[in-house]
Design a protein around this nucleic acid. Structure first.
Lengths: 341, 341
DNA sequence: ACAGGGCTTGTCATCGTTGTCAGAAATGGT
DNA sequence: ACCATTTCTGACAACGATGACAAGCCCTGT
């Protein structure tokens, strides 16, 4: 193991100077900088993360807090985040938390104490459904954790905190308008989990597009859902069994859209011939159904990258100074939508 | 922040005694143990991970090295590993490595130096395709990293190293025998990526089951693949276009099986009426196709858990003493297989 | 009663880095 | 030419835990 003293000796300077160069501190002459840099290079020196964080109280690691890793959404965000972390020389540390720990502030604080082990991470990335949980919000603030949320930024009950997201409302509006543009007037909607902000914002977009086209909303074809395949399957059955069934369904994510498509298959209803189906997210599954799903592409990998970048750049700055990042989305037209018969 | 000295003061003992209790070292009287434990409890003391690892050269973290997080296989293993880590008080640290870094030992060693940051993790979990890469194997050994591989344990070019897995060969044998039992005699096979051991072992199982039933293998219906949906789709097209096409196909994972099913749909061939399709893994997708896929269930979450457990238990023990863990699998019969017409 | 040994507890140095502070050198204003 | 300020560099302590070692205690066997 090569330590800082070794580099200092090699470069003929004091270890403090080496430290300064490595941390890009000012007040070092360029000549010194060069000497140190090349010594580091020659010896293949890598600073010890534990010594660093013990002394400086920084961890050079970012924590990604997940609830259910098996969701494609989270996996993809994670993928982007990991890439960025590695590029910036940070560790990505994963943690998983159950719903039980989110009940009250006491429990959550205890959870954090146990899982942080003394060293605060330099940043915390929250994904849904933690991204808009008020308990989490408060605890994170009181612990002074530099946090960024993956999700919308308009929670009524809190002040502005940092976030990365697309404009869910506008995207859902666009998709609904797209269906209306194809000639649909009776468009069903399947909601997501009620504790996630995205559910409400997507519904708002749906509603506003209907209103904009002068179509009265029919509450009977707005169905509950839970963002998973099975709920799409169930609600698909419900919709298909209706007497006056819609000519199109906008499921608020792809897993549910895939469920609706399977329900249609099983009921012998052709998609998009007799029923158009639209999704949201552009999951892998959107290209693996028959027909493939027209959806909104969220740049999930990029969202992960931006989240990390924001945290690292703002290291030290306080939460309030972090801004919201709104990323572009894209309506991807595939085969599951068409003009009504 | 509450430190060890605070606990010592509260309990009226020396800090060394506190340390001993926390590390479950012998030679401490039970009365002392109790006093310390309750002081820890009262103060909510959590040891500092960085101080610990700086001094003791242990990291209390385990590294999961991935290549492409977006595979369901890896995500699920990760999920199990994470659960176990948290239960045992370890951090799970994710790292991603590209194929470029695996070319030669020099490069890989440099990669490790850069990504370990001084502190070796207490364990390393390798998943395919790193799990049976000879370069990786050598480097890991020379760095003295406690490693466990998720995958088979019969690499010709190395000595025995620890692994967790199912018996791929036997499982593939069972599935093939199952198809034969249904009455199929002409059974196609789609291979996986050639650099993964599982590919060869599954093929071996397929071959031995055919041989056991006295069926000559027809190389023309053994097709290459790459474990992804699209390769299943392509090879499905190839198989379906054959003059003397098989009555059943055994795709060596579910993604490819789903691809074959879609190819059949598009070609107007009914599954399982005209073509039986079997998969391997029991991915989420196996239940989201029409028909659902008959497959081999690998206990992936459990594999992740066992991997972590093995590493933590063996902390300090050398690689060779770690054993192979063979976990049970299960043949899940769904709707994609039936007797031939 | 005492030497020898195991058990229990404590003192102190140490891991590798960064923060504090002080001193040396360079710069600038008069 | 001189003092004040800024820029640069280094010596040293400190972060919070564990390892090495020592000392005190309580046995046991003679």
């Amino acid at each position: 193991m090569v330590r800082m003293v070794d580099v200092a000796k090699e470069a003929g300077v004091s270890i403090k100077t080496v430290s300064r160069v490595l941390n890009n501190e000012p007040h070092v002459q360029d000549a010194m900088r060069q000497k140190v840099r090349s010594a580091v290079e020659r010896l293949g020196y890598i600073p010890s993360a534990s010594a660093r964080s013990l002394r400086s109280n920084r961890s050079y690691s970012i924590m990604l807090l997940i609830h259910d890793v098996r969701s494609m959404f989270v996996s993809t965000v994670q993928f982007g985040a990991l890439q960025k972390c590695q590029k910036l020389g940070y560790h990505l540390q994963l943690s998983m938390i159950g719903s039980d720990q989110l009940k009250d502030e006491e429990t959550l604080k205890a959870w954090f104490a146990e899982n942080l082990r003394g060293g605060h991470p330099d940043g915390l990335v929250l994904v849904p459904p933690m991204a808009n949980n008020p308990v989490m919000e408060r605890v994170v603030k009181s612990l002074g954790l530099n946090t960024i949320r993956v999700g919308p930024n308009e929670i009524p009950h809190t002040a502005r905190t940092a976030s990365v997201m697309i404009d869910d409302r506008q995207a859902a509006h666009d998709m609904t308008a797209h269906l209306i543009g194809l000639g649909h007037r009776r468009i069903g909607f399947i909601r997501g989990k009620e504790d996630q902000d995205a559910t409400h914002r997507r519904f708002d977009g749906y509603a506003s597009a209907l209103a904009g086209a002068g179509i009265a909303m029919d509450e009977s074809i707005v169905l509950p859902g839970s963002f998973d395949f099975n709920s799409g399957l169930e609600q698909g059955d419900v919709l298909l069994a209706m007497k006056d069934r819609p000519t199109a369904v906008f499921a608020s994510n792809d897993d549910m859209a895939a469920g609706v498509i399977m329900a249609a298959h099983q009921a012998g209803v052709s998609v998009p011939g007799e029923l158009s189906v639209a999704g949201f997210d552009d999951n892998e599954i959107a290209e693996r159904t028959l027909p493939t799903i027209t959806t909104i592409r969220q740049p999930l990998e990029e969202i992960g990258m931006v989240a990390i970048e924001a945290l690292v750049t703002a290291a030290g700055a306080s939460l309030e100074e972090l801004t919201s990042h709104v990323l572009p989305y894209e309506l991807v037209e595939r085969r599951s939508t068409a003009a009504p018969a």
